[in-house]
Design a protein around this nucleic acid. Structure first.
Lengths: 338, 338
DNA sequence: ATGAAAGCGCTAACAA
DNA sequence: TTGTTAGCGCTTTCAT
């Protein structure tokens, strides 16, 4: 049978409460008896029962990690999420927290999963791995006053949520600036999906940079539907861009392909800079020049800040900005004289 | 305050045990009172407390999902794992199971995490997302007689573990056969890492196919260290292969690049076939001809079989083979006459 | 500094 | 068919 606190108490010749206190290293217990108790624990191979602690404590020492639904920009295929999870895992391991996962094929399913986890008191708080405009999950978390940390930029409740993000606007600017510094003048912006706040911000940054340099700001293009692709081709013809800022590495790989199929050479004809510095960036030839957003740091902070919040509920809700970094590889080159 | 089973009992004018039984839809309770009780639950917004149920039941209704450590073939960057997790999530949502995640930067850390989850009775069983030779985690699970399902092929305890896998040997054969059918005669095999059982099996299948066709079987090549790359180049020079079977899509992308840098054209000079049909397969140009291993089905079955096992511990431990499928795209072409 | 005992919310054996 | 009650393993007053 499983060894309980009672067994330890008997073995050590003390009361269960003494064992319990020893467990938390309470100053009320003398060093001598602590030693005695710990020896008993050792000997019997005792480990506290999680459920019992939870029940008595009304806390769970576990955080729920919410993955985006399968349809949203193919997250299942976005390696960033796994990196985030791994990193959250590291922090949780250190702090003896557990990770519970909320997933779903649809928003409804995901929300059910989240609600269930909360109602049944399985988690103390959540980490939302994505930020999406008008997200029903966030609304739910907010309305129920459930502690959570958001990875990305909130569209609402900005002052009432813990979030960890890059300065997306600034990184958009950095990307465009990189092209400008290489002599580019006709620069376009290709985004992932209009619903991601990230994209909007980066586009603003792109606009800032071009405006500062007195260059023409073009409307953003998306790659969601085949129609978008048509628009892209039109854009290429009409404005003859020499540089493109692309929403993320994976999209950049697709763009790269489209360009090559269309007889454009990268970077000779068109330079490309994208975001994330994910696996994809060093997969194709040429390697992508890209902006590293430091996902691991983002995730680590999210976990750390959420856990801090859980331990001191009265603390103010922090926001944190993780710096980005331009990684120059092979897809950006100095524009040829015309 | 939280509403408990007592509140519901009072509201419905019954005993707590009646409420508890209604919860499980026990046939002992009459329809009438069930209705009454359910109405009371509704009215009060009752949801059973997970920890309390666990404590009383000595079961947790949650399964632990074990991710490979960060260093093993860069799993953090392998999108298959996320797909698996998502799919396990779907099954768990259906069956009202919860997912807990075990991760770690090192084997030791991972093992601690797994051990903790088990000792503290956080999970009823595990799903091991990877299969690695001489895996200490598996040994631990086996020694402690903890229920688990393995995704992949076991190197030991084969008859005492639930596993779900492809017929890797056969898929290796299919890959080689595909090349042979396209007229290829000089065919090489490039693997990921010698420690993955999968690779070994596929190589055997490759050998089977070549032997059946009376072609020369070459030793397998790996892409782990820069030295491996040298060996690869030597191999190209010496044996002038027209076709290559590659361990997985991502590796295939790298191989593709190396070949192109080395002035080989794919598929004109060398055909390529790989495994997994992951995101990577349609990312590069040309698109990869690859073998779909049906990860989602693999994951779904793993979850389903494990849960079944948890519910009927006496059932025999099933093994399941999920069929593969050749996806012909652009990297395999008929060999040119010589 | 330590112990006794009353919960935490739910289940199940036993009674009725 | 339903109610009573003793746990499940741990925490935490309240005594001592």
């Amino acid at each position: 049978m499983t060894v309980t606190i009672k067994d330890v108490a008997r073995e050590a010749g003390v009361a269960t409460s003494t064992v319990s206190r020893t467990l938390k290293d309470s100053p009320l217990i003398s060093e001598n008896t602590k030693v005695k108790v710990r020896q008993a624990m050792q000997k019997l191979g005792y480990t506290p029962n999680f459920a019992a602690q939870n029940l008595a404590n009304k806390s769970t020492q576990t955080i729920g990690v919410i993955l985006p639904v399968g349809t949203m920009g193919n997250p299942a295929q976005n390696p960033l999420f796994l990196e985030m999870i791994q990193e959250i895992g590291v922090v949780c391991n250190e702090q003896k927290y557990m990770i519970s996962l909320a997933t779903g094929k649809t928003m409804a399913e995901l929300k059910d999963s989240v609600r269930l986890m909360h109602q049944r008191k399985l988690v103390d708080g959540f980490i939302l791995l994505y930020s999406e405009a008008k997200d029903p999950i966030r609304k739910f978390l907010h309305d129920e006053k459930i502690p959570y940390a958001l990875l990305g930029k909130p569209d609402v409740y900005e002052n009432e949520t813990i979030y960890i993000d890059n300065d997306n606007r600034l990184s958009g600017k950095s990307a465009a600036d990189c092209l400008i510094q290489h002599g580019h003048q006709r620069i376009g912006y290709v985004g992932l999906t209009p619903s991601q706040v990230v994209d909007k911000e980066r586009y603003k940054g792109y606009s800032d940079a071009l405006r500062d340099a007195n260059l023409t700001v073009h409307p953003e293009l998306y790659f969601e539907t085949p129609t978008d692709f048509m628009a892209f081709l039109e854009f290429l013809e009409e404005t003859q861009p020499t540089g493109l800022v692309v929403g993320d590495d994976r999209l950049a790989l697709r763009v790269l392909q489209y360009l090559q199929l269309d007889k454009y050479k990268v970077p000779d004809d068109i330079s490309l800079i994208s975001f994330n510095n994910s696996v994809f960036a060093t997969l194709s030839h040429p390697f992508l020049t890209t902006i590293d957003i430091h996902v691991q740091e983002l995730a680590r902070q999210a976990a750390a800040l959420l856990i801090r919040q859980l331990n001191e509920p009265s603390a103010l809700l922090p926001k944190m900005i993780v710096p980005h970094e331009v990684i120059e590889r092979e897809t950006v080159m100095r524009v040829r004289e015309e």
